[in-house]
Design a protein around this nucleic acid. Structure first.
Lengths: 309, 309
DNA sequence: TGCTATCTGGAAGTTATATTTCATGTATGA
DNA sequence: TCATACATGAAATATAACTTCCAGATAGCA
């Protein structure tokens, strides 16, 4: 959370902070409103600041003095005339404006569920998840994403999927979908101690997709290490603090998992996983489609599903 | 670009900036590119900087140190790792970026993943999930939500969790958490044909949480029907087209699942599930905490986890 | 378990920034 | 022309920023 800097509100003792220049006005507005009361050097400064607004004011007072060809004291005086306590406070206002201008629309407040107050857990949780998603994607390298997808879609090598105690369900989620898209997919069980047996079937060039979030599990890190030794390419899904398994990973995707809860939220991890599934399916379309058809035929014959409507 | 020599990672604090001539890269890009080589405190700092980028980096090094909860020296060290001469130079780069961004309206366009074009699947998928979440929450009755949570948290009755072929992983996700919060929780397996056996242990007043999305599974609907006959209260998670099992449900939560994919996205369903977990945990705090403690003690004794950090 | 290499923040040291002071400069009107 | 009032920047000062150094903490390893 960005610390909230106090708005420049105080009566400067220069006597006359111009009329009604409310403290929440932008610097530019304040300059324009008070322009006629500025002196020659101050106007020169004002013009420079407005010319390359607001960046010119974000540097040091010295730098601004040089570019606008006035002295530093002039800058301080003008800042005070505009109602700020000093130059740093003016700068802080400028930064605030930059934030307003650039800030991602997703960070803006949203009321998700109309029926519930903002403070209701539903809305707070949704807010957190969206924040997580935004931050995760801001960190994600699309190139690595594409490459990892290609690796998972490569039919020449097997894909192994593994997770931990909680993330095991995510691993299974990926596995179930991959299984529908391509052959040569295995799920390494997380709950029992048989996983070393699965390592026997991991070969040079294979891919291991591993999910590991805090508290990072010893099993998972070991698995990553052993797999790496066997020449297996590791794709790691972890949290923002990054599992130690990352040192063995070819691609690491760190997802935000914080939520207003005693437990972490792996929702974002699931979104990324789903996106990958979509990508892999799309790029291996023909083969995948055939496989899906076959699969559905099998389902129909086993009577596992009944079609409704 | 991917790091290929991850296995050879070590003594990273050689003075050399990791990437060759990074001088024209944005700070965010440099952070992302070097993230793997950053230490714990540096990653914490990096996360803060990306969180409110670029404004958080425009203030003083002291302010940044405070908001990111690391020391000023750490900031200097990271700046150097990223290839800058010091913090002021990094800042100057940030200001330059602000100038570029603000003066060039095209870059102001809202993007999720900066590096990827809007049309990239990552961004389209994220957009869809957000849309799904919005619509789902707009239709969700907070009252029903609260009541359903209360039912799941009621220790006087057992809770059974079941899902289908794909949603089975979600069911397991809920189950694993519930299990940590309260006793009397069972997972009805979806993959085999033993589920009728589990019905034997469902009693009047119990709760059944069922996940069922299209194509609605025969098994699931049958399970709902039989459970209802035995006086079990059904909480149903389904999609916007609503599973036929809804006719037996006390509470139905329909979640949007559409995505730019050949497969559906159950991400929103997971978010709702996680929110419920948070709610239940919070309202049965004392007992849950005790249980969690006990559980962790057990984990420690089995040596399943090693603590990192 | 202890050993080693690395990480980290406190505190001192160094440099830059922001502000105040004050002498000089400039405009205006008598 | 002078007197006055304000404007301005050089220099001094105060303040804060930035960097370096170092000892304790920590993680990984044998």
């Amino acid at each position: 959370m960005p610390k909230h800097e106090k708005n420049a509100e105080q009566h400067s003792n220069t006597g006359k902070p111009a009329t009604g220049n409310a403290s929440d006005n932008t610097v530019a507005e304040r300059i324009r409103a008070n322009f006629h009361q500025l002196t020659r050097a101050e106007r020169q400064l004002a013009n420079t600041m407005l010319e390359n607004y607001p960046v010119s004011g974000l540097g040091s007072i010295t730098a601004l003095a040089e570019t606008s060809d006035v002295s530093a004291p002039t800058i301080v005086r003008m800042a005070k005339k505009l109602g700020f306590r000093g130059f740093p406070q003016l700068q802080s206002q400028l930064r605030h404006e930059v934030e307003e201008t650039i800030s991602n629309p997703i960070t803006r407040h949203n009321r998700w569920s109309e029926g519930a107050p903002d403070a209701h857990l539903i809305n707070r949780f949704a807010e957190a998840v969206m924040q997580n998603l935004r931050q995760t994607l801001a960190n994600l390298d699309p190139g690595e994403f594409d490459e990892a997808c290609a690796m998972m879609g490569d039919l020449k090598h097997a894909v192994h999927v593994a997770g931990g105690r909680i993330t095991g369900t995510l691993a299974e989620y990926l596995f179930r979908h991959l299984q529908m898209i391509r052959p040569g997919t295995t799920l390494v069980p997380s709950t029992d101690s048989h996983w070393p047996h699965y390592v026997l079937d991991m070969h040079d060039g294979d891919t291991l997709v591993l999910y590991d979030v805090r508290r990072y599990e010893n099993n998972s890190v070991k698995l990553a290490e052993i797999a790496a030794e066997r020449g297996v390419n590791l794709i790691l899904f972890t949290d923002q603090w990054v599992s130690p398994a990352a040192r063995y990973a070819k691609y690491t995707f760190s997802c935000r998992i914080e939520a207003p809860s005693a437990w972490d939220s792996t929702a974002v991890m699931q979104v990324i996983t789903e996106t990958m599934i979509a990508r892999i399916q799309a790029s291996s379309w023909k083969k995948a489609q055939l496989r899906t058809r076959e699969l559905e035929a099998l389902f129909d014959r086993t009577g596992l599903f009944r079609r409704f409507k």
